[in-house]
Design a protein around this nucleic acid. Structure first.
Lengths: 343, 343
DNA sequence: TCCATGTGTACTAGTGAACAC
DNA sequence: TGTGTTCACTAGTACACATGG
C-alpha cells in the first residue's frame, strides 16, 4: 500500500471520510473522543495532506511564483538578484510559503507561464521583476486576477501592488553630490534601456544638466554585463574631453569600469570619480573601495514578501510601498576633480 | 464561468470527456477530424491543463525541490550558492522544469518538508546540498523513493545519485603547491565541521603533514561567515609562530582574511600567502587578487540538473558523477615565504 | 468479425453541504 | 442539538465496453 489517505484512516477507525476530514482540519462536527482516535490513527499511519487533492478544491498552493526572463547566468553574477532572492525567501519561509522559480527565454514565454500556473493554481501569487517601459505582463496579470506584486515603479503597474524605490531621487542625490565636489562632466553607464528604472535614471541625469550647470551629462545604455560596462567605460575615457565622473547602474559594471580605468592609466579618484548604483561586497572590497548607493536589497526582498503575503491573505489589500530612499555610502573612489582639469 | 475544463470542451464539441482527453494528449482512439475540432475548440476557449488534477492521477509535477537549512542571508552572500542556483536553473529550464525552493530552520524541518512534498507529489525529485557527516536526510529520501541527487561525496549517500568534487584531491593540490613554494607552516580556515566536505579537506591537510614535512598544519573551524573567517585569521596571525600561508574554505572568508592581514600590517604575499577554495569575481578583483581553486559552480549546477532530469526520466538510472577536478588559478596572493622567515 | 472510433464510468484525495439518527 | 453519514464535486486519466461500417 502506498501513502495513506483519509479513506484508509476512516476505514481503520471505523468512521466516514467526512468525519476524518473534519477531525484533521479541526472543525466542529465530530466528538472529542472520535477526533482523538482519528488524530491518533493519522499519526500512526503517518498521514500527510495531499496538496494536489486540496488544490482541486481551491485551497492555497502555499507557493508564490517568480518567473524571470533573463539568461540564467546573470542570476549568479548579479549580487542584486541573489540578495533579492534571499530576502524573499527569508520573508516567505517564515510562513512556510515556498517559491516556484523558473527562468524563461523572453517575456512572451513568461506570460505563458503566468497563464499556466494561474489556471493550474500552482501558486497563490506572482512576483514580477524587471518592469519594462511598456510592460505587457501587467495586463495579463490583471486579467488573470492572481495576487501580484510588482517590483518597480512608481506607476505603470495598473491595479497591481508594487514595491518600489525612487530611482529618480536616488540619481539626483548622486549627481548633486558629484556636482558639489566640483564635477561638471558626468557620464552614466546605464542598464537595459527597456527597463523602466533605467529610463527614470537617465531622465533624472538629463534633467539635472541645467539646474546644476553641468557641461556634459551623457548616458550610455548597456545590457548590465561587466563586458558592456567595460566597453562603455573605454569609449567614454577615449573621448577628447573625458568625463571626470562616471555613474554606473550596477556594482558589477562599476567594478569593470574601475578595471578599465586602471588598464588605461586613468587614476581613480584623482582623474576619475566612480559611483555605483548598487552596494554589495563587491564595492566594499574593490581597490579603491567604490562609493555606492546602498539599497539593502535583502530588506527589499523581505518587503516584497510581506506585501505578497498580505495580498494573498486579503486580495483587496492592494499596496503601493515606497522603500526607504537609499543613502550614498562615500568611499575612496570619489573626490574633487583634479586641479589639472580645465573646464 | 471560470476557467474552461475538458468537460466544457466536450460539451461544446458534442463528444465525451474521454475523447477530449485523448485528443489533447495526442493519443490514438479518436479520429483526425474529431481531434482537429477538439483542438480548435480548446484553443478558442483558451484551455490549459490543470496540474493539480493531473497530479492526482500521478502525473509529473514538472518541478524539482530544493530545501535548504541555512539562514536565508547566506544565500545572497555566498557566490557559490547563487552560481549553483543559476546553473541548476539553466539546466532545468531547458526542459521547463521549475524549481520549488524553500529555506528552513534545521535538518529536522528539512526532512519534514521532504515527506510533505513527496507524499503530495509536489515535485518530481529532490536536490540535496550541504551533505553532513552523518546525514539523516539520506535514509529519509531513500525510504520515500523519490528521485534524488546529492551534491557531495564520494560515498555516504546510500543508493541516491550524486554529483561530487574530490575535495581531498583539491586540498592536496593546494598544499603541494604551497609546499613547493617553500611554505612549511600552513593553516586552514575551514567551514562548518558538520559538513562532510569540510572534514575531507581537514583530513587531507593533516595527512599531508608528514609527507610534505610540514612544521604545522592546523585547521580552524568556522561557520563560513566573513566575521568568523576574520576572527580565525586574527587568531592565527597573533600566534607566536605565524603560519606563512592560509587556505580558506570559501572566497568570502579569504577576502575577510585578506582584510585582517592588511589591518594587522601583515603584507600579502610577502609575509603571508592566501589561497581560497572557491573562485569567483570576489577573488579576481581583490587586491592583491587571490589565488583560488576554480570550480565552475555554474557548470556544477548544470550537471546536477542533468543527472536529476535523467533520474526523473528513468528512476533506475542512478548516477555517481565525479566532476572535473578543479584547477588552481594562481594570482598575486601567493609567493614563496619571505627570506626573513626562519626554518 | 474485425477494427477504428467513441462512450460511460470508476478512480485519484480531499472538501463541503444536505440530511439522518 | 450534537454527532456522524452520504454523496456530489473539483479536473483529468484510464479502461472496459459499445457502436457502426
Amino acid at each position: 500500500m502506498g501513502r495513506p489517505t483519509i479513506a484508509d484512516i476512516a476505514e481503520r477507525v471505523g468512521v466516514s471520510k467526512g468525519a476524518v476530514s473534519f477531525a484533521l482540519n479541526g472543525r466542529p462536527g465530530v466528538g472529542e473522543a472520535t477526533r482523538a482516535r482519528i488524530l491518533q490513527m493519522a499519526k500512526e499511519m503517518n498521514w500527510r495532506p495531499h496538496s494536489a487533492a486540496r488544490a482541486l478544491g481551491g485551497a492555497r498552493a502555499e507557493a508564490v511564483g517568480l518567473v524571470i526572463a533573463r539568461p540564467a547566468s546573470t542570476l549568479g553574477v548579479e549580487p542584486f538578484f541573489a540578495q533579492l532572492l534571499s530576502g524573499l525567501q527569508a520573508g516567505l519561509s517564515a510562513q512556510s510559503v515556498a517559491m516556484h522559480l523558473l527562468i524563461v527565454e523572453d517575456v512572451e514565454a513568461e506570460t505563458e507561464i503566468y497563464r499556466d500556473w494561474a489556471s493550474a493554481h500552482r501558486v497563490d501569487g506572482f512576483i514580477v521583476v524587471d518592469l519594462k517601459v511598456r510592460d505587457p505582463r501587467i495586463e495579463v496579470l490583471e486579467e488573470l486576477g492572481v495576487p501580484t506584486v510588482v517590483l518597480g515603479g512608481p506607476g505603470r503597474h495598473g491595479s497591481l501592488s508594487s514595491v518600489w524605490a525612487d530611482d529618480r531621487e536616488a540619481m539626483l542625490s548622486i549627481v548633486e553630490y558629484l556636482a558639489a565636489l566640483g564635477h561638471r562632466r558626468i557620464a552614466h553607464v546605464a542598464g537595459l534601456p527597456a527597463f523602466r528604472h533605467t529610463q527614470r535614471r537617465m531622465r533624472a541625469l538629463r534633467d539635472s544638466t541645467r539646474r546644476l550647470a553641468l557641461a556634459d551629462a551623457v548616458s550610455v545604455a548597456t545590457d548590465f554585463s561587466d563586458s558592456e560596462g567595460a566597453a562603455a567605460t573605454r569609449t567614454l575615457l577615449s573621448r577628447g574631453t573625458r568625463p571626470t565622473a562616471i555613474v554606473y547602474d550596477s556594482d558589477v559594471m562599476a567594478l569593470a569600469g574601475l578595471g578599465v580605468a586602471g588598464e588605461m592609466g586613468v587614476r581613480v579618484p584623482d582623474e576619475l570619480s566612480i559611483v555605483a548604483f548598487d552596494d554589495s561586497v563587491l564595492t566594499r572590497i574593490a581597490h579603491p573601495a567604490i562609493t555606492a548607493l546602498s539599497r539593502d536589497t535583502f530588506a527589499l526582498g523581505g518587503q516584497v514578501a510581506e506585501v505578497m503575503l498580505a495580498l494573498i491573505a486579503d486580495p483587496e489589500a492592494r499596496q503601493d510601498l515606497k522603500t526607504a530612499t537609499p543613502r550614498l555610502v562615500v568611499r575612496r573612489s570619489t573626490a574633487a576633480p583634479g586641479t589639472w582639469q580645465d573646464d
